[in-house]
């Protein structure tokens, strides 16, 4: 300093750092999920000339790890409640009847569909809807009403519906 000039020399610190900002906006909605799968079971049955349960000789369950269905020699078990669509098709020769039987957890048996043949060769296809409220077994029962009556290998597909 001299007598006519003054120097002001100081440091003005910057203000303190601001507080953390508010949370950002929520993210965008996720993408649409994949198409729903409908578990299914496809069985081929052995032919038969005798009255009784038809035996399964080939089974395909999709997807591979589906818990909806299990199968043994002559019965399909539907393990999950829900609505199911079925189609049974094949050929019956001679006088005979074929029943689609359902057995519930209390061993109550119900014939949900029946196909009858009165002639040499009956080609048929039968579809329907099953409402399953508890574990159920499904099987095919063949009644041969005449000596040479028989059923050729049948195909039976059951699909779990998405509603």
């Amino acid at each position: 300093m001299d007598h006519s000039e003054y120097i002001l020399d100081f440091v003005i610190p910057a203000g303190k750092r601001g507080t953390t900002g508010a949370n950002g906006l929520p993210g965008k909605q996720g993408p649409t999920g994949p198409t729903s799968q409908e578990d299914l079971i496809y069985n081929q049955y052995n032919n038969s000339f005798t009255t009784g349960l038809l035996n399964i000789f080939k089974t395909i369950i999709l997807p591979d790890d589906s818990l909806c269905f299990s199968v043994n020699n002559n019965e399909i078990t539907i393990n999950k409640p829900g609505n199911y669509e079925y189609t049974l098709c094949g050929k019956i020769n001679g006088s005979a009847n074929l029943n689609i039987q359902v057995i519930d957890e209390n061993s109550k048996l119900d014939n949900i569909a029946s196909i009858s043949s009165v002639k040499e060769a009956t080609l048929f296809s039968k579809s329907g809807i099953l409402k399953i409220t508890s574990k159920q077994k499904i099987r095919l029962y063949f009644f041969a009403n005449a000596t040479n009556a028989n059923v050729e290998p049948l195909k039976f597909i059951i699909k779990r519906l998405p509603f």
């Binding site: 953390t20 900002g21 508010a22 949370n23 950002g24 906006l25 929520p26 993210g27 965008k28 909605q29 996720g30 993408p31 649409t32 999920g33 994949p34 198409t35 729903s36 409908e38 519906l161 998405p162 509603f163």
Partner: peptide
């Protein structure tokens, strides 16, 4: 600020029926 909350779940995928 910290990341925002996760967005809402996307819609259910279509069924074939």
């Amino acid at each position: 600020g910290p990341q925002g909350i996760e967005g809402i779940t996307g819609p259910t995928g279509p069924a074939s029926l």
